[in-house]
Simulated assay, not measured.
Amino acid sequence: RMHANMLIMNGKKMAKSTGNFILPNEIFSGDNPHMTKGFSPSVARFFMLQAHYRSVLDFTNDGLLASEKGFNRLMEAINLLDSLPTSTSSTFNVPEWKQSCYDALNDDFNSPILIAHLFEAAKYINQINDAKASITKDDLAELKKAIHAFVFDIMGLEELTTTDNKGTNEKLTGTVDLLIKLRQEARANKDFALSDQIRDELQTLGIQLKDGKDGTSFSLS
């Protein structure tokens, strides 16, 4: 059992008398004046793991929002692992990276450093997906096994794959695909103002469009 340091909120000590406090269930429901929305248990856990357990953790809405974006980026990279192409050589030293992750864990369970290494792997995965890096079949298998161990077994995170989320994701994908098609038509008609407006409005909503040789894809930022 690990005992963590103090938990504060918005830079101040939590106190019911001042209203500067939050109940555990309110983290998930968002039913708190200091919160703009609710967050999944895995996002809340990811937020806490981004600070070392010995340090004081400042619980803020902005911090949770940033952690949610980071969590989503990490999960998007993990979801790419099964579809990555392999090559005869690797441009990333997987055994060395894995050892760095274990070194972070052995350094008084330094979860912030571990997460930094995981984002390093996520960047590499995206580069492979964009044909800017390569990996062998054996290294890919080792990378996949290690990432699943660190993310799901050790850190205890869970991917958001409930039936409701799946349905929501399908609706989101269909809607964004339609907007991408409308944007392509606007560009074909040289209506670049409308094309840029669609891209910018989606970016404001946290949806990043990426134009490539095989068409336009999107990701959640």
Rank of each mutant, 00 (worst) to 15 (best):
L182R: 07
L172I: 15
L7P: 00
T88V: 10
L105K: 05
E96V: 10
F47R: 00
L64Q: 01
N106Y: 11
L23D: 09
S17T: 14
L64K: 01
K145H: 13
L81Y: 04
N61E: 10
L194D: 00
K171P: 00
E158Q: 14
F47N: 00
S87F: 08
A51L: 02
A104K: 06
G156S: 12
A15Q: 11
K12Y: 10
F71K: 02
F28Y: 15
L7S: 03
F46K: 02
L57D: 06
A4E: 11
N32M: 05
I207D: 01
K69C: 04
L209H: 07
G30C: 07
G63M: 08
I113C: 03
H148P: 01
L105N: 05
I198H: 03
C101T: 04
T161P: 01
N72F: 11
F46L: 05
A149D: 11
N32P: 02
L157Q: 03
K166R: 10
A104W: 02
A121I: 01
A51N: 10
E185N: 13
D196G: 10
K13R: 14
S217G: 06
D211G: 09
L57A: 08
S67P: 06
D31N: 14
D103P: 02
L81K: 04
L84S: 03
A15V: 01
D31E: 15
R54A: 08
